[in-house]
Simulated scan of single mutants.
Amino acid sequence: MASYPSVDYQHLADQIKVWATELGFQKVGICDIDLSDHEPQLQKSIDAGLYGEMDWMVRHGMMRARPAELLPGTIRVISVRMDYLPPQAQFASNLSDKTQAYISRYALGRDYHKLIRNQLKKLGQKIEQEVGAFGHRPFVDTAPILERPLAQKAGLGWAGKHSLLLDKETGSWFFLGELLVDLPLPIDEPSQNECGKCTACMTSCPTQAIISEGVVDARRCISYLTIEYDGVIPEEFRKPIGNRIYGCDDCQLVCPWNRFAEITEQKDFHRRDTLSNADLVLLFSWSEKEFLQKMEGSAIRRIGHIQWLRNLSIAMGNAPFSARIVEALKSRLGLNSNLDTHIEWALNEQSNQEPLINRKVDNKNQRLIRVIEKGLPRDA
C-alpha cells in the first residue's frame, strides 16, 4: 500500500465528492474492496451457465470479486453514478405500437462508456493534483469487476431483485463507474435493501429470466438475447421479445422506486435524431453503410448490421400484418443463413395474420350469412 503521510484523507474524500459532482456525476461513494461474500453466488452462477455465451464473465472467474487483481495495490473503490433517463422517454406508447422498434432507453444516445471513463480520468487527475502521483485506474462496465456490489458498499443503492442497482431517491435509470485507488480513504455506509416483499420485476419479465431474487439467467434475458447473443434466438423467446430490438426495460418500468427518477441533464444521453422515427421497416431498410453511419458513437453499433436485422425481423414478425413488412422481409432473404431463419419465422407469423379486411365482415353481411345458413326468409 502506498503511503501519503501528509494527506488529510477525510478532507480529500469530501473534495472527491465535490469534484465528481462538478464532472457530471449525480452521486459518489467510497468503499473497501472486500467482496468475498459474493464469491459463492458468482461461482454458482458460473457453474450453472447463467452467463450464456458471455465467456469473458467465466474466463476471469473470481477476479471479478477481487479488484486488487485488476490493479495491484488497490485498497479503495470510488464508485460513481450518472443518470441517463432521457426526456420524452415514451415507454408505454413505444412498447404498445408494434410497428415501432423499442430500444432500451440507455442506448438512445451516445455510448456511455467513453464519456464516463473520460470523466473518471479527470477525477483521477484532480486527485493527483492534490496528493501527487498515486495508483489508480478507471472502469466502466468493460472489465471483470462486480460493480453493483461495490456501488452498494459505497452507499449508491442496493441490488434489486432484478439485480440492477436501485436508489430510493432516483430509482435505477443510471450508469455506474469505478475508480480503483491505492489511497486509504474513509469509507461510506453501505445501502440497505429496500425492496421489501415487492416482486413486480420478477413477475413482469417477458421471458421469466429472473429465476430467483437477484439472479438472472442471461440465456432467457431479452437484453442478452438481442445484444450479447449473436446466434439463432430460440423460438420460445421470439414472441415474448415483441418489438424490443435492443435491450429491454420491463423490469425497471414496473419498479415503484422509478417513479422518483429524474431526467438526465447530460445531452449525450438524449435520443439521437436518427432514432426519432423508429418505424420497423425504415430501420430494416438501412444498408450496412447506413447502419454504421447512423449508429456512429452509439452502443448499438457494436452488435453489427446482421444482428440489427435479426432483431428487427423478429419484431416485424410480431407486428400486425402488413404487405409492406412482408415485402421488406423478403428483400433480405439470402443475406445470411442465421438471418434467414428469423426472416422465415417472421414471414410465417405474418402469413398467419390475414389482412383485417379479409377476416372482418360488417354486421349486415354477417346477418345475411346467418340468414342463408338457416334457410330463413330474408325478413326474419
Score class of each variant (00 low, 15 high):
Ser6Pro: 10
Val7Asn: 03
Leu12Phe: 03
Ile16Gly: 01
Ala20Thr: 04
Leu23Ala: 01
Gly24Cys: 06
Phe25Gln: 00
Phe25Trp: 04
Gln26Phe: 10
Lys27Tyr: 07
Val28Lys: 04
Val28Met: 13
Gly29Ser: 05
Ile30Cys: 06
Glu39Leu: 15
Gln43Cys: 08
Ser45Asn: 13
Met54Gly: 02
Arg59Ser: 14
Met63Ala: 13
Arg66Lys: 03
Pro67Ile: 10
Val77Gly: 09
Ile78Asn: 04
Val80Arg: 00
Leu85Met: 10
Ala89Met: 15
Gln90Ser: 13
Lys98Phe: 15
Gln100Ser: 03
Ala101Gly: 00
Ala101Cys: 09
Leu108Asn: 07
Arg110His: 04
Arg110Gln: 06
Tyr112Met: 07
Lys114Thr: 11
Leu115Phe: 06
Leu115Thr: 10
Gln119Met: 15
Ile127Ser: 03
Ile127Thr: 05
Ile127Leu: 10
Gln129Arg: 12
Ala143Ser: 12
Arg148Trp: 08
Pro149Asn: 11
Ala151Glu: 05
Lys153Asn: 09
Lys161Cys: 05
Lys161Thr: 09
Leu166Ser: 02
Asp167Leu: 05
Phe175Leu: 09
Gly177Asp: 08
Glu178Asn: 02
Leu183Asn: 00
Pro184Asn: 08
Asp188Trp: 07
Asp188His: 05
Glu189Asp: 12
Ser191Gln: 03
Lys197Gln: 15
Thr199Ser: 15
Thr199Tyr: 14
Thr207Tyr: 01
Gln208Glu: 11
Ala209Gly: 04
Ala209Ile: 13
Ile211Arg: 01
Thr226Phe: 00
Ile227Phe: 00
Glu228Thr: 09
Tyr229Arg: 01
Gly231Ala: 14
Pro234His: 01
Glu235His: 03
Glu235Phe: 02
Phe237Arg: 05
Phe237Leu: 13
Asp250Leu: 12
Leu253Arg: 05
Leu253Val: 11
Pro256Asn: 10
Asn258Thr: 09
Ile263Thr: 11
Thr264His: 01
Ala278Glu: 06
Asp279Gly: 09
Leu282Arg: 13
Trp286Phe: 12
Glu296Lys: 05
Glu296Thr: 06
Arg301Met: 15
Ile303Gln: 00
Ile306Tyr: 11
Gln307Asn: 14
Trp308Arg: 00
Ala315Lys: 00
Ala315Pro: 00
Asn318Cys: 13
Arg324Leu: 05
Ser331Ile: 08
Arg332Ser: 02
Asn338Val: 09
Leu339Asp: 09
Ala346Ser: 08
Asn348Lys: 15
Ser351Ala: 14
Leu356Val: 14
Asp362Pro: 06
Lys374Asp: 09
Arg378Gln: 12
Asp379Pro: 06
